[in-house]
């Protein structure tokens, strides 16, 4: 396979996802496509089904119908653990860090490394030094400035905590990092720092799905924007060729997706 061809296979793709909760239709024939190495923003009004879509992609929800593909191969995630093992890491909106543990401990939480030899195999002793050193190097590579890798996360600011959560995902995600409203609770300066960090995660070769309500954030860093409406993908647009107001208009239904001339992916069927 040439590089040209492999670049054209989306790292992640979903076709015709459906999910019902009783009478409520959360996913209604939803398609999804994430290109290799891009930052794809997923936007949509409250209740549009964004979070169900993301959950269906990351194994937290099993869709009633439809298929999910990773690197062109069909996958059936039964739990978030399956998705993680496949190289997809998710940073959830509720800050998923243990505040009483330090930064290194958080980066390695659930993936602790044991010492080699008898200390590790028989006594199951952790290799704290190795984890500290590698965690510090990882934070440096991502340009996250902290005083000490041994700082408890409770001593960090909201932005720094979010940075730790993102760094954790970037450390273990081999293919895709999913960020759910990573800047929702942050101030202007910290938001900027987290956006920079997301760019560096992309620079490391990872593909990023960014769920966000913040149009400034989305237009600042997204390569493409997936607009979700009424349980399915209304359109995919480029932030370079489509205006903010058009994106919001499609999101809220004020503008039919067909009317957006600059759309990269038009809706597959007539409305």
């Amino acid at each position: 396979m040439t590089q040209d061809q492999s670049a054209r296979i989306p790292v992640m793709q979903a076709v015709g996802l459906k999910k019902h909760y009783g009478h409520v239709v959360a996913l209604d024939d939803a398609d999804f496509e994430l290109a290799q190495g891009e930052i794809l923003a997923v936007v949509g009004d409250n209740g549009a089904g964004k979070s169900t879509l993301i959950k269906a992609l990351t194994g937290a929800v099993i869709p009633d119908e439809g298929d999910v593909y990773l690197d062109g191969r069909k996958v059936h995630f039964k739990s978030p653990l399956n998705a993680r093992l496949a190289g997809i890491e998710t940073v959830y909106q509720e800050l998923a860090v243990a505040t009483q543990l330090n930064i290194a401990q958080n980066l390695y939480l659930g993936r602790e490394v044991r010492k080699s030899g008898i200390a590790g195999t028989v006594f199951r002793q952790l290799d704290k030094k190795l984890m500290r050193n590698q965690a510090a190097e990882h934070m440096r590579n991502l340009g996250i400035r902290i005083q000490s890798i041994n700082q408890k996360v409770e001593t960090l600011s909201g932005g720094q905590r979010q940075a730790v959560a993102v760094a954790r995902a970037a450390a273990w995600g081999r293919k895709v990092v999913v960020l759910d409203e990573p800047t929702a609770a942050l101030g202007v300066r910290e938001t900027g720092q987290v956006l920079d960090l997301i760019r560096r995660v992309k620079d490391q070769g990872l593909s990023v799905i960014l769920i966000s309500h913040s149009m400034p954030d989305v237009f600042a860093i997204a390569d493409r924007i997936h607009i979700h409406r009424l349980g399915h993908r209304a359109a995919v647009v480029s932030p370079k060729s489509t205006s903010r107001s058009d994106v919001v208009a499609v999101m809220t239904g004020a503008l039919e997706p067909e009317a957006v001339q600059s759309a990269l992916i038009a809706p597959p069927r007539a409305a």
């Binding site: 978030p80 653990l81 959830y92 509720e94 860090v97 939480l109 659930g110 993936r111």
Partner: peptide, 8 residues
């Protein structure tokens, strides 16, 4: 919740 999310 964080513990569960990291797979503990």
């Amino acid at each position: 919740e964080a513990a569960r999310l990291v797979g503990i």
